[in-house]
Amino acid sequence: MVSIKLDSVSLVYKLHEKLTLSAPDRRVSGPGGRIESSGRKQFVQALDGVSFELKAGDRLGLVGPNGAGKTTLLKVLYGIYEPTEGSIAIEGKVDALFNINIGFRREATGRRNIVLRGLISGWTEAEIEEKMEDIIAFSELGDFIDLPFKSYSQGMAARLAFSAATALDPEILLMDEWIGAGDASFQDKAKRRMDELAEKAGIIVLASHNESLIQSVCTKKLTLKSGRIESLTTEPPKRMGSAAKR
């Protein structure tokens, strides 16, 4: 059974340099996590006592100002960061899209990059072979697939990254803000694929500043502020466009 459970998860970044030279008492509290210091070390409390549970079919939208802790939370869910405190239990195969360029090599062709990306995600060669044409078709990159990755625009890279990450039906898909990089028609396609994924009893966690994207994709909305949960609401997604007709 696919599920995510976080129990009062906190995460503190330690910094060894001074963050700023201005006097701390005159600074207004910004949008980010809280900055604390002891001696030469400084700490940023990026997540503070975050608890929630997600079960199969849930689509969670993460919102909050810059520095609220959205990316950090996604990386904790993926397993890149171990929480400083609290515990986390995840059932299911996770795939993530943080930064479009991660795992892509500039000099290699799109096709070769799909292979590398697949290997990194732990796919077998047979699985890569099997999914290759699907991925290329979904990305609509056409002949560009045999050109080096460095010749792609941001939007094209986003298409390739999204197509590859969702090709093997991950049970849990984590996505950071950049999903807006593709053009409108691709975003529509991407939404449909996310719907399919969630209908197959998967979980999606999507961080975005795009309110309408969150509304059309997500069933739950978690608002973070300075690393704390400000609100967690459940709302039925407003289906729009082609996704509603199916």
């Binding site: 993530a96 943080f98 991660i102 795992g103 990194i120």
Partner: peptide, 9 residues
């Protein structure tokens, strides 16, 4: 860095 911060390899 980019791999370590972006994948769980």
């Amino acid at each position: 860095e980019s791999f370590i911060e972006g994948t769980t390899l």
